[in-house]
Design a protein around this nucleic acid. Structure first.
Lengths: 354, 354
DNA sequence: ATTAAGAATGTGTACGTACACATTAAAAAC
DNA sequence: GTTTTTAATGTGTACGTACACATTCTTAAT
C-alpha cells in the first residue's frame, strides 16, 4: 500500500497525503480526516527503502568507553559496538569510538569535551566514572543529543536506553552457586582487586548481593565471611593476595566480584597443594578467566553478555533514529552461569549475531 | 560512492557499470577491467535502499513446526519466528507457519505436501519426525528451495543453516549441576516422559551426555543410576511416575531430559515429606517449569534459547535472500543454566531483541 | 564502398517517498 | 465586482539502482 494508492482512494493528490502523514498542516480539516481514516484503514506502512533512499541521512554516533589492552573486560563491549556498526552502517549509522583511561578523571573530561565538540547525533556512554559521566549527560541533554548508557546506569538521567546488568542479583547468583559447591564448613572470602581507588558501584552491588544471599541462607551457620581489598598499584600486592586467599587455612570459597578473578586463580594454581580445594567464582568471560575455568581452578564465571550490551546500545540508535521506533528505556541482560561444560557455546565469537 | 560516480570515473555510462557489476556480459574486456578496478578501488557498496526499492522483491518463507497448546515447548520457537517476521517484513520477508502434530506422521506428510505446493522461497523446518523430515529435505533440494533446520539437525542435508543445541553437552551439563547439588550418596534417576513412541534423538543424546559425565566423575562410587520411561498415554502413568521417583527411598536426584520435568515436580510437590530433598534438573523455560523453579522444587533448568532459534532461522533467510550474505551453516546456541536467582532476566519477553 | 550483422555502449523509465515549488480555490479587502 | 491575500491542493524533481530499450561503433560480407 503506497501513498499513491491512498491518494487515489481519497481523491486527493500525493502532496496532500504527504502533508497529512507528516502533519505539515495546510490541509483542510475535512480532507485531513478523510485521508487519516484511509491511512488507518489500510494500515499504511511507509516503504523503508524509498524512505531511506530519499532521506539518505547518516547519523554520527560516538561511543565513549574505557580503553583496554587485549583480553581485558572492556574489549568486549567495544567489540559488540563495532559488530553492530558493521551491520548497521548500510542504514546510515556511522560510529566513532572514543576511549578514556578509566583510572584517570582528566582523561575522561578531555574525551567528553572532544565528544561535545563533534556534535554527534547520538552517544553511547559507559559511566564508569560516575560523577563526571553524570555531568556529561546533563550537557548532552541540554544539547538535545540522545544518549544510551551501557554497563551501569545513571538513575534519572533521561537516557534513551540503559543496557546492562543487575549487579546485586549477580552477586546473589554467585553466592547461590558458591553454596551449591561448598561441601564443608569454613570461611568464604570476598576479594576485591582494583587498580585505582575509585568507588565502583557495580562491584559494591555484587558484594551486597552476595552477602545478602549468604546471610539469608541455611549455610550461614557453617561459614564465616571475610572481605579483602587488593590494590594492584601497591608494591606487595602479590603477597597480600596470597595472604588473603587462605589466611586461617580454612577457606572453602573465594568470590571476586569482577573480571580480576584470574589473579586469584593464578595464586591458587601456584599453591595448589594447600589451596587446591578452594572454590572460585567470579565474573566475565575474558581470556585469562577462561583459561582457569578450563583448568578447573575457577568453578563458575558469571557473564552479562558485554558484547550484546555494546551491540544493543548502537542498535538502540538505529531503532530510534532510522526506524523511529520506541526503544525500551531499560534492558537488563541475562546473568549467564558459565562452567566448563557450557563454556564452548558462550565463547563463540558470534554471540551477537542477533 | 554511487554507480553514477563510478561511471564518471571510468568514462563510461551507467549501463556499462551496471553490466560489469551484474556480470551481464556485453562489455569489452578492456572496459570491464577498467571498471572493475575502479569498483574495487573505491570499495563500492550498493545502496541497499535504492536496491531494495527497485527490486521490491518479497520472499515467502514457510515454517513447518510442531503445533502446541499454550505453555508447551514449541510455542517458544514459533514465538521467535513470529518476532523475526515483525522485524523483517519491511524488508520483504513474508512468513507462513504450518503446524503439524508431532505425534502423527500422516499430519506431517500432509503439511509437507501442502508446503511443497506453495512453492516458497525458503523453508524453516523442525525435523522432529526424523525420517519424514529427511524425505522432505530431499524434495526441497530437488526443487531448489533453500531450507534451515531448527532444534535438531539432519546431517548432510545441505541445509542453508542449522540452528540448535548440542544435546549431548546439555546432558553433561545437567549431570555436572546434579553432582554439585548432591551432598549425600544414593540413587540418581533419569526419567523420560513422552506421549508417543517415536524415537527422539535429542532426548537420547541428553541422556547419553548425562551418563557420560556421571560415569567419568568422582561421584560414581557414591551413586547408582537408574532409568525409567513414563508414557503419558498409559492409564496409570501417574502411579508409574510416583513409583519411579523414589523406588528405594534413596533417590537424591532426578534428571528429566526434556521440558516434561514439571510432571515430576508436581509429583514431588505432593509427596514433599518423603521426596522433598530430591534435586531436580530438567530442560526448558516453559511456564509450568518456571512455576516449580520459583517454588524451589526444580533446582536447575537448562535452556537453549528456543525463541532465538526461531528468530535466527528466519533471519538466516533475510541474510541469504535480501542481503545476499553468507550465513553460517551451523549455529549452536549457548546452554543456559537457569535457577531462581537468574530466572527473571531469562524469562523476559524480549530475549530475542537482537 | 556499401550494407548488414553483431558487439559494445548509452539512455530512459520505474520503484515510493520527501520536499520545494506551482497552481487553484476561497475568503477578505477595496 | 474586482483585486489582494491566504488557505488548500496539485505538480515536479531527486534519491541510486535495475533493467528494457535505443543508439553507436566494429567488423565482416557483399
Amino acid at each position: 500500500m503506497t501513498i499513491k494508492e491512498i491518494a487515489k482512494l481519497a481523491n486527493v493528490s500525493l502532496g496532500t497525503v504527504d502533508r497529512v502523514i507528516h502533519k505539515r498542516g495546510k490541509v483542510s480539516k475535512k480532507t485531513e480526516e478523510k485521508v487519516s481514516a484511509i491511512i488507518k484503514k489500510v494500515n499504511y506502512q511507509p516503504n523503508i527503502y524509498a524512505r531511506g533512499l530519499v532521506l539518505n541521512k547518516s547519523y554520527d554516533i560516538i561511543a565513549l568507553v574505557p580503553s583496554f589492552v587485549e583480553g581485558e573486560y572492556w574489549e568486549m563491549p567495544s567489540k559488540g559496538i563495532k559488530m553492530a556498526e558493521k551491520n548497521l552502517s548500510k542504514f546510515g549509522i556511522k560510529l566513532e569510538i572514543l576511549y578514556f583511561d578509566q583510572n584517570s578523571v582528566p582523561s575522561f573530561i578531555e574525551k567528553a569535551d572532544e565528544l561535545i565538540k563533534l556534535k554527534p547525533d547520538g552517544v553511547i556512554l559507559a559511566p564508569v566514572i560516575n560523577f563526571e559521566a553524570a555531568k556529561l549527560t546533563k550537557k548532552l541533554e541540554k544539547a538535545n543529543i540522545p544518549f544510551s548508557l551501557i554497563d551501569s546506569n545513571i538513575p534519572n538521567s533521561n537516557a534513551l536506553s540503559f543496557i546492562g546488568q543487575d549487579a546485586f542479583q549477580s552477586g546473589k547468583l554467585a553466592a547461590k552457586l558458591m553454596c551449591s559447591e561448598i561441601k564443608a564448613q569454613g570461611t568464604i572470602s570476598i576479594i576485591t582487586i582494583k587498580n585505582n581507588e575509585n568507588h565502583n558501584k557495580t562491584l559494591q552491588q555484587r558484594i551486597e548481593g552476595f552477602k545478602d544471599y549468604i546471610y539469608n541462607s541455611d549455610f550461614i551457620a557453617d561459614i564465616s565471611l571475610t572481605e579483602n581489598n587488593i590494590h594492584l598499584g601497591s608494591a606487595n600486592w602479590e603477597e597480600c593476595l596470597t595472604q588473603a586467599c587462605n589466611p586461617d587455612n580454612d577457606t572453602v570459597g573465594i568470590f571476586v566480584p569482577s573480571s580480576m578473578i584470574h589473579y586469584v586463580a593464578k595464586c591458587i594454581e601456584s599453591n595448589v597443594d594447600t589451596m587446591g580445594n578452594i572454590k572460585l567464582i567470579g565474573n566475565d568471560l575474558i581470556a585469562n578467566n577462561v583459561k582457569y575455568l578450563k583448568k578447573g581452578i575457577i568453578n563458575y564465571l558469571i557473564g552479562q553478555r558485554p558484547e550484546n550490551q555494546g551491540y544493543l546500545a548502537l542498535e538502540s540508535f538505529y531503532k530510534h533514529l532510522v526506524l523511529e521506533k520506541q526503544v525500551p528505556s531499560e534492558k537488563y541482560l541475562p546473568l549467564d552461569i558459565i562452567t566448563q561444560e557450557n563454556l564452548m557455546y558462550y565463547n563463540d565469537d558470534d554471540v551477537v549475531s542477533m
